[in-house]
Design a protein around this nucleic acid. Structure first.
Lengths: 188, 188
DNA sequence: TCGCTCATGTAATGGGTTACATGATTCA
DNA sequence: TGAATCATGTAACCCATTACATGAGCGA
């Protein structure tokens, strides 16, 4: 399962050299919906990647702002990235969802509490759905504007966006179904 | 986000006392679809829970088999579980999906490779969907048979099963859509 | 006889989050 | 004046995976 962030970083650095800080920006604006990371973890992972010669770095001094440490992918890094991309995932991608865990163990007597929890989630997922429908497409265009040589990647990005859209719509449907079940008093 | 396994263990121990080994069985048969764990992690977490007085344990000697260490939830453990159950999740439940990450960074030129990956996942998700539709309902009944006093929990378990079903159906739809897009040669 | 189930764990390593620490510029 | 952005990182801690270690009984 492990070592995913590594490949996210290599993937972006394969587009163009950048700093850890910038990587966080790209990650949280694009892959963030299915792979996110904290800055501290990004810096740590970049260090490892430098140790294993998959990236190199150099300092760019700046005035009025902190110096930038710019990372560049190496040939070895590119090779590892390619190889990872070509290797199919044969296991199931595992899912963790703490809401379901909580629901599973909830007291069936506490109907009101369950409904509150579901309503909160409903709103969150509705917002997310809207984001996928309205904001993300323009984000994708901006991304392609910054790196016009990557325009052919847009269908892949669009596929991941579409996944998010379907996921949120499914989640909303499930919450509405479940709410209905718990809101209408049972006949027993 | 953290410390979920703890509550999964407390949740099951709240049903009845059992060993770490048995807990793994229940987890991987029921909550496994949205919260799974390795045995070694379960043993470790049980130790922590004992140190914080949320569970107690005693040894039951056996003949021909290794002795069993049976864990029992304490009043403090129950209180913590209740409190966790009552606290709503206000952030978004975060998603990590390595398939999407791989797809995002795939080379759009490698259409064949992308199709292979998607087809493999398609089969996995179809199997999972079948499992949710056919096997899981009987598992839920068995569960309720072992602990008939928990029959009223069945609707909650059913809700988590239904989530799995919708999730897999959504995933399959997305793969089929995406496959179609990459299988039919683009018009450009 | 081979592998599975029952049953316990330890050790090493890796991955991830939260808190801490610093500090200038810019915009409201 | 206060918050956000840019920009770097360390330290402590927690969570999770993989490999290792042991060993009897049972069914194919």
């Amino acid at each position: 399962m492990a070592i995913m962030l590594k490949f996210a970083l290599l993937g972006f650095l394969n587009y163009s050299p950048m700093t850890g800080y910038e990587l966080e920006g790209w990650i949280n604006a694009s892959t963030g919906n299915f792979w996110h990371a904290e800055l501290s973890q990004i810096y740590k992972t970049l260090k490892q990647l430098e140790k294993s010669d998959e990236v190199t770095s150099h300092i760019e001094p700046q005035v009025g702002k902190p110096d930038r440490r710019v990372y560049t992918i190496t040939a070895a890094g590119k090779a590892n990235l390619e190889q990872w991309l070509e290797t199919p995932i044969v296991e199931e991608v595992d899912k963790k969802d703490s809401l379901l865990l909580k629901l599973f163990f909830s007291s069936p007597a506490d109907r009101a509490g369950i409904i509150v929890q579901l309503r909160i989630q409903l709103r969150l997922h509705q917002q997310k759905l809207e984001h996928y429908r309205l904001q993300t497409p323009t984000e994708i265009l901006q991304f392609a504007n910054v790196h016009p040589e990557l325009l052919s990647n847009a269908p892949l990005w669009e596929a991941t966006r579409r996944h998010g859209e379907l996921y949120e719509a499914m989640y909303i449907q499930w919450i509405e179904e479940t709410l209905q079940q718990f809101e209408t008093p049972s006949k027993e």
